[in-house]
Design a binder for these strands. Sequence first.
DNA 1: CCACGTGATGGGATCGTTCCCATCGTGGTG
DNA 2: CACCACGATGGGAACGATCCCATCACGTGG
Lengths: 338, 338
Amino acid sequence: MGDSRRPTIKTVAARAGVGRTTVSRVLNGSPLVSPEARAAVMEAIAELNYVPNSVARSLVTSRTDSIALVIPESESRLGAEPYFSAIIRGVSLQLATTRVQLLLTLVRDQRELDRLTEFLSARRVDGVLLVSVHRDDPLPGLLQELGLPTVLAGRRSPDEPLNHAHSDNVGGATEAVRHLLERGRRSIATITGPLDMEVGNSRLQGWADALAEGGIEPDDALVAPADFTEEGGRVAMRALLERRPALDAVFAASDVMAAGALAELNRRGRRVPDDVAVVGFDDSIVARHTDPPLTTVRQSVEEMGRTITRLLLQEIAEPGSAEKCVLLPTSLVVRDST
Amino acid sequence: MGDSRRPTIKTVAARAGVGRTTVSRVLNGSPLVSPEARAAVMEAIAELNYVPNSVARSLVTSRTDSIALVIPESESRLGAEPYFSAIIRGVSLQLATTRVQLLLTLVRDQRELDRLTEFLSARRVDGVLLVSVHRDDPLPGLLQELGLPTVLAGRRSPDEPLNHAHSDNVGGATEAVRHLLERGRRSIATITGPLDMEVGNSRLQGWADALAEGGIEPDDALVAPADFTEEGGRVAMRALLERRPALDAVFAASDVMAAGALAELNRRGRRVPDDVAVVGFDDSIVARHTDPPLTTVRQSVEEMGRTITRLLLQEIAEPGSAEKCVLLPTSLVVRDST
DNA sequence: CCACGTGATGGGATCGTTCCCATCGTGGTG
DNA sequence: CACCACGATGGGAACGATCCCATCACGTGG
């Protein structure tokens, strides 16, 4: 045995006693090939252990059968933030039935952004998934210019032009705060996500909406912006307690920030939920492990991953055919922190 | 303005008034090109906004400038298990200075394994990183056969033939148990990782070694195998308490399992560390968030990611040139659970 | 009986690079 | 002055697939 060289389509054709084109047809499932020829080709393929060279295929079809998942990690959140892991799982799950491969790109700084830009300009992927986009993110615009199929998880503004999926952030946040009101809380603070992200604004909006519903006038001193990190949550909590020592509830725009807030409350001897009730957002794993376990707004991040992938594949297959925007529902999970 | 078509090397050559080859030389940094020609080419590239087609390049060089990171996720651990996120961060960090891209492949079942096998046979990557390998994993063997550069995080046995890096699991575990002995504990149980993985065995070995050092005979009833999951840790803890109600310490082979054990101990009203001391392994984020915070053996998983990537790149550049085996140190981090 | 449509087939061109080799000029040397 | 070595250059072939188009056999209808 053994050519050290991998067999090519020519080898297979010779072996099967047919032309290259016929082999190619069998490979691509064309109906224009006789049963005998097909059988011969299949046999030759099996005998030679032939695997088509996808690079050569890519060159002529100009498709790569791969997509990129871009994760901005300036705050080194992958790992601390279970969100990204869940997205990855969902994406991978949705790709499992296809032959499409996943390229993971963490973008930490300008240099890496430049490298990514070049990579995308070279069209080394068929499409791009963008996660955690900030308002002034240069990437979405670039992708739009390049005409590279793109789907966002989340959106930059309510009139996002790019295809995207997003959770019902306003609705989820409203429900959370409504729940606090029902529990009799009146001085409800909020720790927000980054306000240059739509997700940050929406959850803040939901907080304000629920208060308005309850006839309570929003108090700016009860709003502390943070950055989705635990440390940010801690700092924000500290600031809130200084400004409004009498607050009796906090709605944090993520579980991780809520965990930080809880730590700070514990440190100061405020009892949760007796003195201060806390609600998070995401229903990530941390929510079940805080002390006490966290009431939170569930969003299925894995489902988000699946959805944006589905949209992207659709958009790649037939540009313009995918839904522009998909809204994913949220639901309140009540635990012991409220 | 403009051609809708992307410029090719020919376009650039024409624009610069030189031949294709000269452009190619400039692109690849060959010294055999005059300063004037080089300048002309650079200018043409900038004007045309030319980006080389890497697929075409791959076809002739038969290099893809990408590597695959394979994560077996049968237990859907990505996310629950911070290990994988940390590996990804490390790998990505090490790749940042190169032009190599990262392909992430989660393998959940046989079908996905088949798909991956075909993918690797087609040599669509230059090398492979393998994480969390089990003793009877078919992938390492396949890769060896294919002659595809491969590096493992961890190893299958102490005489692993493939390039790999591994933490000092025996040493770390020994140190942990020694620490428990110093704290005066005598009935020290262990919750192991999967015993069909070397990491599981080594940490168990370390436990036994330390006991031997302390003149204590290992008791089989104090060994409960689990699977690195929190639920597994909980179940194992339950079994241990049933078999040896008087145990006064537990060494868990991962923080996540330790968290499960803690939960079970709390549920049963055993005080930690007063009644039972607990040590974990990994120093992952969960270790700082359990109640009480976990004493644990630190291993730098991110460093592991960087190391295996470095080895792989080296092995790709010059097969056989990389170190066969790199040992990464561990260190004990003492918190409140002991 | 012949022209014609149709299914099956294969050869040539092509995708955009890199690599091999031939060519050309030029300055140094015997 | 002839020759040579060497740096610079460019054209042709190759990488391994797909796609376009010409060809061919064959059955059918006029």
